[in-house]
Computed example of a mutant assay.
Amino acid sequence: MTTFLLVPGLFMGGWAWEAVAAELTAQGHRALPVTLPGMAERAEEDPVGVGLREHTDAVAELLDTEGPGIVLVAHSYGIFPALAAADRHPGQVARVVFVDTGFPEPGESVAAQMPQLGLPDHALDGLVPVPEEIPAVHAVPPSELERYHRLATPQPVRTVTEPIELTGAWLKLPTTGVFCLANGLSLEFARTLHGTGLPRFAKLADPAVTFFELATGHYPMLSTPVELADVLMRAAAGEGVGLYED
């Protein structure tokens, strides 16, 4: 049995992982969807006062409580608090799984890594509003789209402007990247990044790093939860392809 700690992306709570968690549980594993402070059912916890540090502390506390041997799964923004927590407590983590996201550099913020989103510019009273729509390219079915708009909550702006604290300890952890092809991430793109020779992309070719590709958009926990759960179980077993494998 493997314990999966599931950290959501922007605007979402643990609810986003319900279908994935159900499939993992049905296959005999333990799944722990995370709702970060100030989000979803925790939105009453002074969301304006919540920053990346508070989100990191929440994940780190769960690692302390539930580890060692956790497979730490993070979608999109969730990699920031998840990776910072894993960097603090690498002995609690068996593998980090990046779901349609990259890894930040020490001192980098979400806003700095993804300036094209303009997240701080959209903030009102310390919160980034939930986007009005999820484009059709992401293949989220109507029922899940309705649920997203009903349950999604504004994102505390400090979570995307505060820099991540990393020592580099996480770099020694086995990792798996799950690319969602309709969102533009792929093995081919990762090879291009590694081919630049920039030090930040060196880990992509590490023998302990594996990859999977899913033929869906940026929200696979909503669009293809069974397929995503299967990939997570395979990742936990060390499966996947290396950067330059066919």
Rank of each mutant, 00 (worst) to 15 (best):
F98C: 05
T224Q: 15
N183F: 14
L151T: 07
L62P: 03
L63D: 02
S76M: 07
F98P: 02
L171D: 09
D100A: 06
R158W: 05
P33A: 08
L232Y: 05
P207C: 07
E54L: 01
P129A: 10
G118H: 08
R88E: 02
A40T: 04
V241L: 12
T210S: 15
S109C: 07
F4Q: 07
V48P: 00
Y148E: 00
V128A: 08
A215T: 14
T65W: 11
P68Y: 10
H122Y: 09
E132R: 13
G49A: 07
V50W: 00
E105L: 12
E45C: 05
H89G: 02
L32H: 14
V130C: 06
G184A: 08
G177W: 06
E146Q: 14
M1E: 09
D230W: 03
Y148R: 03
A237N: 10
D46E: 13
A182E: 13
H138G: 03
K172G: 15
D230A: 15
M1L: 12
D206I: 02
Y244E: 09
M114H: 14
P154M: 09
L36R: 00
W170D: 00
V130W: 02
E108A: 12
A237S: 12
P163V: 07
W15T: 01
V7E: 01
L173W: 01
R191H: 07
P120Y: 09
A19F: 09
R191G: 09
G102W: 10
V7I: 14
P154F: 10
A74T: 05
P90G: 03
A21V: 09
D121L: 13
V96K: 01
A86P: 06
R147I: 04
P115V: 07
Q116F: 12
V96A: 01
F98H: 13
C180E: 10
L198S: 12
E41D: 15
A229G: 14
G38K: 03
A229N: 04
P68L: 11
R30E: 14
T210L: 08
V48R: 15
I164A: 11
W17C: 04
A112V: 13
G67E: 07
V73Y: 06
G67K: 04
G14A: 07
V99G: 08
V140F: 11
G240Q: 10
D125W: 02
W170N: 01
T175G: 12
P142L: 11
G91R: 13
V140T: 11
P225F: 11
K172S: 15
P81W: 00
E23N: 05
G197R: 03
H29S: 11
H89K: 13
H55K: 00
T224K: 15
G118D: 06
H89P: 00
G177Q: 12
R234F: 05
A94L: 11
Y219G: 06
V7T: 05
V157H: 04
P37T: 03
L243N: 10
G217L: 12
P163I: 06
L24T: 08
A111R: 10
A152R: 00
F189Q: 14
A86Q: 03
R147V: 01
V209N: 13
P81E: 01
K203H: 13
T216H: 12
I70D: 04
Y219K: 04
L232I: 08
V157R: 03
V128K: 03
G14L: 02
A229H: 03
V140Y: 12
V226C: 01
V231A: 11
